[in-house]
Write a protein that binds this DNA or RNA. Structure first.
Lengths: 236, 236
DNA sequence: TTCGCTATTATGTGCAGACATAATAATCTG
DNA sequence: CAGATTATTATGTCTGCACATAATAGCGAA
């Protein structure tokens, strides 16, 4: 049997491509107001629904800006956004083909320190579980984790056993959350941190800091120090 | 006139909310195969189209995984992704309410160095424009830019004037691209870098490294050293 | 049993039409 | 003419329906 001829109707992907090409080629330079969805649909002989989906995605991608009645405008400098998967240390390590290892370094319950309360809006005397642990890749120190968990928000945390696997995995499995804030920066390792990571004091460490929230209340605050040389990749 | 009673039909946002809530509450624990779109549509009294849109977005967000015939599965550890806008230094600085300043430090044309060719797949002898410049916030050094541009890909770059504004802005305005790779890491500042940034040699600097491509060919490679203390925020 | 075809089924995408909503443009009014 | 009101218009979203496509499950033949 002959292969059935593909229906050559135009789809939203194709529409996206066409519009992108026109924007890139300066056929529609920055700040241009694009033709309305109905016009484009007519030109490309598809329905407005299809054009709409394409345009919505272009808006999501930061290529255009849409406003009712005002129309769709080509953004001057494409506000391209990059995405990265929020680091999960076990996945990171195993994804790189290395063996994952873990060690609990310390565990204690204490009142939230002032700097933490100030940064997160916690009550100053909140009871927190404070954990530090080390994640290893092929036996070598990879990441140093310093975590605070609000006991009021997650009472069960006190009964959890973190001798053989980290609190991150337990939390992500057991505790719901609605929002995450992440920040990245560089810091010099203290003597204590360097010793844990098998690096030299003062070495530059890539640091991820994460706050996890459930409906506006802090669940956990964690600081992750990576071993010197670590790179975080993203793609736009 | 009385306010017209809002039609209380259910929309895709509401569907997303409901599904999210059920997943969070463990009503649908990880690895559950959700009811089919048709069933959900019936339960929520909306159409399959609406449910479909909601589920597509949940898949985009990394909450569920969808496969034809196999159905929609709740992911075990929500592969939440964070997005950040690819740093554009002027926007960053002005967005923080500071005055933007700029200085060109050096400009020369040279063959691509070996490490660059190796990392980008450029021909080893490609002619490149090499620029270094400094971006200032309220007069203080903020970011040190070290950029390579492929002259073959962007011939007009040789005629551009980078005395008063940076190559990043010129490129984003004039040159189309299709892909961006970004990497972030921490590095200790060399003596020369520290002098430029008004910091101390050995200080930890947050570094962004960016490769920009047009249909598989490198357009530009840039290394951005931020002043010590800089934080990059993202939100999930 | 195992290979290979076919039927089934859940998601993917498109069409046509309708009404909702936001924001601008046009018009009316003092 | 300024300010308020109304009309217009582009996008936002939903309803129903139809067919496409991928992947599994089930069946039959070697």
């Amino acid at each position: 049997m002959a292969v059935l001829p593909k229906r050559d109707q135009i789809g939203y992907r194709k529409v996206k491509e066409i519009v992108m090409a026109r924007i890139r080629s300066r056929h529609w330079p920055p700040d241009t107001i694009l033709p309305g969805e109905a016009d484009l649909a007519a030109e490309l002989s598809c329905t407005r629904t299809t054009v709409n989906r394409a345009m919505q995605e272009l808006a999501e991608d930061g290529i255009v800006e849409r406003k009712r009645k005002a129309g769709t405008r080509v953004l001057p400098t494409p506000v391209r956004q990059a995405r990265f998967t929020i680091p999960q240390v076990r996945t990171d390590i195993e994804g790189a083909g290395a063996d994952y290892g873990y060690r609990l370094l310390s565990r204690d319950v204490a009142a939230a320190p002032g700097w933490l309360a100030a940064r997160t809006g916690l009550a100053a005397r909140s009871r927190m579980l404070h954990l530090t642990c080390l994640h290893l890749a092929d036996g070598a120190p990879f990441q140093l984790e310093d975590r605070w968990v609000d006991v009021a928000a997650v009472p069960a945390i006190l009964d959890a056993d973190f001798d053989t696997s980290g609190p991150g995995e337990w939390l992500v499995r057991e505790v719901p959350y609605t929002d995450i804030d992440v920040a990245f920066f560089a810091a010099s390792l203290s003597a204590a941190q360097a010793a844990r990571l098998g690096a030299a004091p003062g070495d530059a460490s890539f640091v991820a800091e994460r706050m996890t929230w459930l409906e506006g209340d802090l669940v956990t605050f964690v600081t992750l120090n990576f071993r010197p040389g670590h790179r975080m990749q993203a793609t736009g």
